[in-house]
């Protein structure tokens, strides 16, 4: 947790990897100061809604507020989204369980596309900068967010991470979420697309077991296809399962190790990124 403001961003390691630097606060945090009336020597019985105290009559009342619990996250996500749109940045939220090969996929994708697009990466993990270092080895800018005990990235953390990245104009931003098939589903980060990675070493019924993650994804990458000859994984059953949860999802079978099927993923990214750039171009 940030010790300055109490927000849940723990450490946004600087882009150079030179260790933690405190993030910039350009928004107001409502700070809940501990308030002890007795400490002021004042016990004010007239502070209730009625403005007075009558023995035996409680000032208890019900306030109807009807407020969305995720509204705050969604407001930050809206700000991130506006920022991406202004910069014509195609932002992808990359989701999966731990060990499905997200980072390997990302490294390979960046290597293929970095000559054609400006690229930046936000890495989310509970601990370590290992993934950001793997990304930086490709020459691309990356910020690591360590969530500490947190199990997902939220839009507030991503907003802070963006402050640590040079602006990527008309390019690609990959946000690699914390490896977790449950918690990240609820948190909009402001992304233009959600890509969920499932590897063939996992069960083919995972989309049914963890439907939230698949229900709102735009694309599923079925990774580690090079291992299929050694496994009993039923690709057809897996596709049937994910389409049951999300009939609109697109599916690509890929291998981050051999590169099989990745050309289609690159086309998918570039098609969307190009549409975004032309839609945002002045005069269009």
């Amino acid at each position: 947790m940030c010790t300055v403001c109490g927000c849940q961003t723990s450490i946004a390691a600087s882009e150079s990897g030179a260790g933690p630097t405190h993030h910039v606060h350009d928004h107001a945090h409502p700070h809940e100061a501990a308030h002890d009336h007795a400490a002021h020597g004042l016990l004010d019985f007239g502070r209730g809604s009625a403005g007075l105290e009558i023995a035996g009559l409680s000032q208890e009342r019900t306030i109807r507020i009807e407020r969305d619990i995720l509204a705050k996250n969604d407001a930050y996500a809206g700000r991130n989204r506006a920022r991406f749109q202004a910069g014509q940045v195609f932002a992808i939220n990359l989701l999966s369980s731990p060990g499905s090969g997200k980072t390997a996929l990302l490294v390979r994708t960046i290597t293929a596309l970095q000559g054609r697009w400006p690229i930046a990466v936000i890495e989310g993990d509970q601990q370590t900068s290992n993934d950001a270092e793997r990304i930086r080895a490709t020459g691309v800018r990356a910020v690591q967010i360590n969530t500490g005990k947190g199990c997902h990235l939220d839009a507030h953390m991503v907003g802070h991470a963006l402050d640590h990245l040079p602006p990527v104009k008309a390019g690609l931003l990959f946000i690699e979420n914390v490896g977790n098939l449950v918690c990240p589903a609820a948190f909009d980060l402001g992304e233009a697309a959600r890509v969920v990675v499932l590897s063939v070493t996992e069960g083919e019924d995972k989309p049914l077991k963890y439907p939230d993650m698949f229900a709102f994804a735009d694309l599923m990458l079925l990774n580690k296809s090079d291992l299929l000859p050694h496994l009993d994984f039923d690709v057809g059953a897996c596709m049937e399962a994910v389409l049951r949860v999300n009939p609109r999802i697109q599916i690509l079978t890929v291998s981050a190790r051999t590169g099989e099927g990745l050309a289609a993923f690159y086309d998918w990214i570039e098609g969307r990124a190009a549409a975004l750039s032309s839609a945002g171009a002045p005069g269009d």
Binding site: E60, T62, I63, E66, R67, I69, L70
Partner: peptide, 9 residues
């Protein structure tokens, strides 16, 4: 998911 009401005093 919403906070619908608060009972306060």
């Amino acid at each position: 998911m919403r906070v619908a009401e608060l009972e306060v005093e």
